[in-house]
Simulated scan of single mutants.
Amino acid sequence: MPTPSNPYRVNVRDLVHRPGEMREKQLTFAVPEQLGAAAVVVPEGTELELDLRLEGLHDGILVSADVRTTAFGECVRCLDPVVIPVEVEFQELFAYSQDEAYDYLVHDDHVDCEPVVRDAVVLSLPFQPVCREDCPGLDPETGERLADAGPREPREVIDPRWAVLEGLALEHDESRKHNENTGTTS
């Protein structure tokens, strides 16, 4: 069983230096610290499920896991809340001795899965979450949700660098109308 202070820590005493031995464990706990720091995160206290397969090898303990949890954030287009189910897998060797080839070690007959789970979950989170793939976002002028606005004619946006020419076109039209009304030519 994991210790209360670190729910990611798993006792592997019965597998240490026993190649060929295998155990399966299921852990469910509240995430003690937020996972992620961008537009979508797994907040502290969110339930996380770990289905572990622990295998004794000559070099260490091979940990294979399925991780399930839920991430929360907001749509980057319309700012509506989004809830994203997270399901990831990982496989990592926890070595018995310090070696450059291995990133993780077995410590005091335990493996600490926290850094591996954190990396797997955070890397699976979308960089720019959306509430739906075809989310139209917000109107750039009014800020209203375009999905709620319904169909409408697109506005003609004039580049401000050409605004002076718009004024010249109006003057030309007025001059032409004046000439037509008075019967003069320019």
Score class of each variant (00 low, 15 high):
residue 3 T to P: 11
residue 4 P to D: 05
residue 4 P to I: 10
residue 6 N to I: 11
residue 6 N to C: 05
residue 8 Y to Q: 07
residue 10 V to G: 02
residue 12 V to W: 00
residue 14 D to F: 09
residue 15 L to E: 08
residue 17 H to M: 03
residue 19 P to H: 12
residue 20 G to K: 00
residue 21 E to M: 15
residue 21 E to H: 15
residue 21 E to Y: 14
residue 23 R to E: 11
residue 24 E to S: 14
residue 27 L to T: 07
residue 28 T to V: 12
residue 28 T to E: 13
residue 28 T to G: 13
residue 31 V to A: 01
residue 32 P to A: 04
residue 32 P to Y: 02
residue 32 P to V: 03
residue 33 E to S: 10
residue 34 Q to C: 06
residue 34 Q to H: 00
residue 36 G to Q: 08
residue 36 G to Y: 11
residue 36 G to P: 01
residue 38 A to C: 01
residue 41 V to F: 00
residue 42 V to S: 06
residue 43 P to D: 13
residue 45 G to K: 05
residue 49 E to D: 12
residue 49 E to Q: 11
residue 49 E to S: 03
residue 50 L to N: 05
residue 51 D to C: 07
residue 52 L to W: 05
residue 52 L to F: 01
residue 52 L to R: 01
residue 54 L to E: 07
residue 55 E to K: 09
residue 57 L to P: 11
residue 57 L to G: 15
residue 59 D to M: 08
residue 60 G to Q: 05
residue 61 I to W: 13
residue 62 L to F: 03
residue 62 L to I: 08
residue 63 V to D: 12
residue 65 A to C: 12
residue 66 D to A: 09
residue 66 D to W: 02
residue 67 V to R: 09
residue 68 R to M: 04
residue 70 T to C: 12
residue 70 T to F: 13
residue 71 A to Y: 01
residue 72 F to V: 10
residue 72 F to R: 10
residue 73 G to F: 07
residue 74 E to S: 09
residue 74 E to P: 04
residue 75 C to W: 01
residue 75 C to K: 02
residue 76 V to P: 08
residue 76 V to S: 09
residue 78 C to P: 03
residue 81 P to Q: 12
residue 82 V to F: 04
residue 82 V to R: 00
residue 82 V to W: 00
residue 82 V to E: 04
residue 82 V to Y: 01
residue 82 V to S: 03
residue 83 V to R: 06
residue 84 I to T: 08
residue 85 P to K: 06
residue 88 V to I: 04
residue 89 E to R: 13
residue 91 Q to W: 13
residue 93 L to V: 13
residue 98 Q to H: 14
residue 98 Q to C: 12
residue 100 E to S: 03
residue 100 E to C: 13
residue 100 E to I: 09
residue 101 A to L: 15
residue 101 A to K: 15
residue 104 Y to K: 02
residue 105 L to Y: 14
residue 106 V to D: 03
residue 108 D to C: 07
residue 109 D to V: 06
residue 109 D to W: 08
residue 110 H to C: 14
residue 111 V to G: 11
residue 111 V to L: 13
residue 115 P to I: 14
residue 116 V to E: 00
residue 117 V to H: 04
residue 121 V to I: 11
residue 121 V to W: 13
residue 122 V to C: 04
residue 122 V to E: 03
residue 125 L to N: 08
residue 129 P to N: 08
residue 130 V to K: 02
residue 131 C to W: 02
residue 132 R to S: 05
residue 133 E to S: 11
residue 133 E to I: 14
residue 134 D to N: 00
residue 136 P to V: 00
residue 137 G to H: 02
residue 137 G to R: 02
residue 139 D to T: 05
residue 139 D to Y: 03
residue 141 E to I: 11
residue 144 E to Y: 02
residue 146 L to F: 01
residue 146 L to S: 01
residue 146 L to P: 00
residue 148 D to F: 01
residue 153 E to S: 14
residue 154 P to I: 04
residue 154 P to E: 11
residue 154 P to T: 07
residue 156 E to N: 05
residue 156 E to Y: 07
residue 157 V to F: 06
residue 158 I to S: 07
residue 160 P to I: 06
residue 161 R to M: 01
residue 166 E to Y: 04
residue 168 L to P: 10
residue 168 L to I: 11
residue 168 L to G: 15
residue 169 A to K: 14
residue 170 L to N: 14
residue 170 L to M: 10
residue 171 E to G: 04
residue 173 D to Q: 12
residue 174 E to M: 07
residue 175 S to C: 15
residue 175 S to W: 15
residue 178 H to C: 13
residue 179 N to F: 10
residue 179 N to G: 14
residue 180 E to C: 08
residue 180 E to R: 15
residue 184 T to S: 13
residue 184 T to I: 14
residue 186 S to N: 15
residue 186 S to Q: 15
